[in-house]
Nucleic acid binder design. Structure first.
Lengths: 257, 257
DNA sequence: CCAAAAGTGTTATTGCTACACCCATGA
DNA sequence: TCATGGGTGTAGCAATAACACTTTTGG
């Protein structure tokens, strides 16, 4: 996967397998232990951090490509993954400079490559448990970090803007879908989901009101069981209400006048 | 613009000017006189209706391309236009069949064209006053209709799904932005904007509650003036609050827990 | 003065916020 | 029995929905 020959071939002939001018760039949020981070990859040459990305195979459905790319980088399947915007305005994306720089870093002297052409970025948000992720870097990257969302460094191209919009999307979705699906165990306690929401939203939420709202909206329901957590009162267990949520997905939010 | 030579050239060499594999397909909603319609174009050969569309010039920013395409078809500038999804999953979009059919209809025998390749569709919603529109068809279309949204016929490719999602987007936006901006005069009456909202949402709204909410949200404000409308009480005039709305645009909807 | 259109008021209900308070548990 | 974390109640306020009511206007 990483030999120089394969890389050369990818740079020169990748467009036979992949659609040119398009990339999929997922912003992968990782939650664990009340911390929210995003996955950044280090470009070869140590000159900058950027989002993971990938290309769409010529006959591969778009959403399948997004899932494949997520799996290639994280090893994970079946997580929250949602398209949120296609970026094609930034001046950075209009210049071939970016890919040319990359070429220099690689030590290649390639003048023509599909990678040097203008590329629009179809962006997705993903949300995973980063303690379960095994990161695999790609051709152009050789290191990674899970970076706290409050400490994001300047990224390549226009990706800081992409990350911002991704976070806004994630926060909005929180109110309309059971996003914690793959972050919490099948049965979870109120304090657990409460911490998750607080961390993603970046603010304190009243426990009681929070619980009442989630239950009222029909997103979660309380079970009869409790969990023993040692030296304290045993919390009830909850589950996501999958039917309610899927119905809500159909309709979207129905605000009324 | 419509000669056979030009068309031939476009089919054969258009990819030198435009990005292949990508199209912009705006769903153009037209409102007038309490009717909501969408613009459909008739494919050459009278075999089906579809959405207007266009391609992105190689060095043209995406949003500029969307605006250009809207202007080319409708003659209008500066209207509500918003990207909502990039479609790349439908089986129709994966087959080259679609463009090949088109070629047959054109009477051409072209075997290879960038137009025959897989194309992802970056879709936009637009909202215009259809009484102000002068429709111009493109290379591949030769007729048009403003079709009531309740009577949409089967469309080409996966475009029925696109239209549905567009309408959902439009209805959602209604609560977050002063969408009527280009549909109503600068100063308008409550009954006018009320009718607009009812028509777009497809349901009755209580006048009084509606007005109170819009004013509370700070989207519109009442002026001191009234308009004389003949044999009835003179309604007050209102204006959009542009500052409030642009601030709201930045933040998105801030739901709280 | 009447019909139609526009605008106003009022109430019941719901939901949200912000607290204060009580319970369970093992050290 | 105490510290800690978990769960409950409620009062006050704001938003909402439904509906009845009043005002304006030209004919």
């Amino acid at each position: 996967m990483n030999s120089r020959e394969e890389l050369d071939d990818f740079v020169k002939n990748g467009h036979q397998q992949y659609l040119p001018h398009l990339s999929i760039d997922p912003v992968i949020f990782g939650y664990h232990d009340q911390q929210l981070k995003i996955l950044l990859l280090e470009w070869i040459g140590h000159n900058g951090w950027g989002l993971p990305g990938g290309f769409i195979q010529r006959r591969e459905p778009l959403s399948q490509a997004a899932n494949r790319i997520l799996k290639e980088r994280t090893g994970l399947d079946d997580v929250f993954l949602q398209q949120f915007h296609t970026f094609g305005d930034s001046p950075y994306r209009l210049e071939d400079q970016s890919a040319r720089e990359l070429s220099e870093k690689l030590g290649h002297q390639i003048q023509d490559s599909w990678l040097f052409e203008r590329t629009l970025s179809i962006s997705y948000v993903a949300l995973v448990d980063y303690s379960k992720v095994i990161v695999t870097t790609d051709f152009f990257t050789e290191g990674y970090q899970w970076c706290d969302i409050r400490e994001i460094p300047p990224l390549l191209f226009d990706q800081n803007e992409v990350v911002e919009k991704a976070l806004a999307t994630l926060r909005r979705q929180l109110f309309h879908e059971p996003i914690g699906y793959n972050l919490l165990a099948e049965k979870f306690t109120l304090p657990e989901i409460h911490a998750l929401y607080e961390t993603i939203l970046g603010k304190k939420l009243d426990q009681w009101n929070f619980a009442k709202k989630l239950v009222n909206l029909g997103i979660i329901k309380r079970l009869a069981e409790k969990r023993s957590i040692g030296a304290h009162r045993s919390p009830f267990l909850y589950q996501f209400e999958k039917e309610t949520y899927e119905a809500a997905l159909e309709q979207g939010i129905v605000q009324t006048y």
